[in-house]
Design a protein around this nucleic acid. Structure first.
Lengths: 135, 135
DNA sequence: TTACGTGCAAACTTTTTGCCTAGAC
DNA sequence: GTCTAGGCAAAAAGTTTGCACGTAA
């Protein structure tokens, strides 16, 4: 574990989980996923470490439509998510088509644009099928 | 007030405020803004009505980087925000350049894309000046 | 051994719900 | 007068903090 933090079992477990799942998770989901191995893991520990790793640049926060903060491994490069509103599957989009838009807005508004969030929502092929049949 | 709701002072006050400000506000900001006129206004009333209006299509929710839900008048057409991280000014962008991206993603992933969030963050010209001088 | 990290409990913030009264129609 | 809406208080959900003990280095 880089950065001069102490390497604890809890910290490894959090980072390993996020590496395995490779999708944004809430603090609670992380706590539950780790509970089988470390039943006493406190949610406050999860929050403290997520915050620590985020500040260190190892993780990034995402905010989706339910207002709950999710964390995922920080990719060096920029990306966004396409989320299925049926099964919550999250697909990371490696492509970011917004630089052109940012230049245009800088010209129009005088803002220096430093960051943006883009998230798309829809139904994946599997959930489309379910909606048609079920109900 | 349309839609068959009862027209109460509280509901008018909420909608009038959102129409005046024309920017996304949190439930708490709405409550504080209305307090001078209706000191007993309960935050639960604000939340209930914001939810009601959102379901009726009169308001829309926005989720920014602090994880607090904000509400604003629903424009018939689609738009996004450019937010100054210095003064929190929120500029609505009437343009949405993402339809092309959505088509591309539909082809690539098979998703039916139903919605998306796009928010840009930066420093407005005034706050850029302050950052340079102050500190 | 020492300082940092953890668990636990309590506090805090944001949002939701139940219940009874008040007010719109 | 009826039935929806509002006020109040408590609860629920998500997150943060203080403190004493545990543990990596």
């Amino acid at each position: 574990m880089a950065k001069g933090f102490k390497n604890t079992k809890q910290r490894s477990a959090i980072m390993n989980l996020l590496a395995e799942r490779n999708t944004p998770l809430t603090a609670e989901e992380i706590g539950e996923a780790i509970a089988p191995s470390y039943p006493k893991l406190a949610l406050s520990t999860v929050y403290r470490n997520l915050e620590l790793f985020t500040n260190a640049g190892l993780l990034e926060k995402s905010f989706f439509q339910d207002g709950v903060t999710r964390y995922s491994l920080a990719k060096g490069h920029h990306g966004h998510y396409l989320i299925c509103t049926g099964c919550q599957e999250k697909i990371r989009l490696e492509d970011c088509p917004l630089h052109e838009l940012e230049h245009k807005l800088t010209d129009e508004t005088g803002f220096t644009i430093t960051d943006h969030d883009l998230t798309l929502y829809g139904l994946c092929p599997a959930c489309k099928g379910k909606t048609k049949n079920g109900k």
